[in-house]
């Protein structure tokens, strides 16, 4: 039986809310390709940051719903008040539930939900723009990413690190301009391994979905290497080669 994802005809819309697009589809495809792993992972709490229309969180809930009471609970946040309303409608139209909240990244959840989230998914505002477009709100907030499209991404990563449980996974969509290698390096220094699980070029953009997971080894290696060489950049370049060994579409973790 093919697994279910959100039906685009049932996704609610609003002029100020980002409509599912190539990036949204790439992220959902990445989750689908990793679905068997996700089911084995037995997540308990999942969170989407920047849920927009609700297409991604609804798809995640549908694809993991093997039985009705599987004990998986979903949270979704967005900074745009119209987006949270639309997400709520999209979820309802598909008969699934997520707790939807209007907030900046996960500001109100960081304390109490720290270390409890098993899956975080993010399709951030990733388009390089002048810095003053970031935080303008409305539809602009759905794409305006500041320098290298990294302004919001760079604020999300430490939050995701804080929220993720020991076994937690982060799925993040990025654009080539966001310097995905550098992002992997940043997360490596926080103790995460990473892998690109979907790579896709459209006419306008080259998109990657990166999966991050805590890897005790990488933390140790980083410390050792830093101590031996006192030169973090060499660690970084070595790591880049390793991490980018996989290419093309879905492969397991």
């Amino acid at each position: 039986m093919p697994s279910k994802i959100a039906d685009i005809r049932l996704v609610a819309s609003h002029p100020e809310v980002y409509e599912p697009c190539d990036d949204s589809f790439a992220l959902v495809d990445a989750l689908l390709s990793d679905r068997a792993n996700l089911l084995k992972h037995q997540p308990s709490l999942c969170l989407e940051i920047g849920c927009g229309s609700g297409y991604v969180i609804t798809s995640l809930a549908l694809m993991l719903e093997q039985e009705t009471n599987n004990g998986i609970h979903y949270f979704a946040t967005d900074i745009n008040p119209d987006a949270v309303a639309v997400t709520s409608e999209t979820l309802k139209a598909h008969g699934v539930h997520a707790e939807v909240m209007n907030m900046d990244i996960a500001s109100g959840l960081e304390d109490r939900l720290a270390g409890l989230v098993d899956v975080v998914v993010v399709n951030p505002p990733y388009v390089p723009t002048p810095e003053d477009e970031v935080g303008q709100g409305g539809i602009v907030a759905s794409w305006a990413g500041g320098e290298d499209g990294r302004s919001v991404i760079d604020r999300i990563l430490p939050v995701a690190d804080k929220l993720l449980s020991e076994k937690g996974w982060l799925y993040m969509l990025t654009l080539a301009a966001n310097k995905p290698l550098e992002l992997c390096g940043l997360m490596r220094r926080k103790g995460y391994a990473s892998k690109i699980i979907v790579q896709r070029s459209t006419e306008e953009e080259s998109l990657h979905v990166i999966k991050f997971w805590r890897d005790p080894d990488s933390e140790v290696q980083i410390k050792k290497a830093a101590a031996n060489r006192g030169n973090p950049t060499s660690v970084f370049s070595r790591f880049s080669l390793l991490s980018f060994s996989g290419n093309g579409n879905a492969s397991s973790k």
Partner: peptide
């Protein structure tokens, strides 16, 4: 409102 908390500052 409609079950959605607005935590924006």
């Amino acid at each position: 409102n409609k079950g959605i908390p607005n935590m924006l500052l």
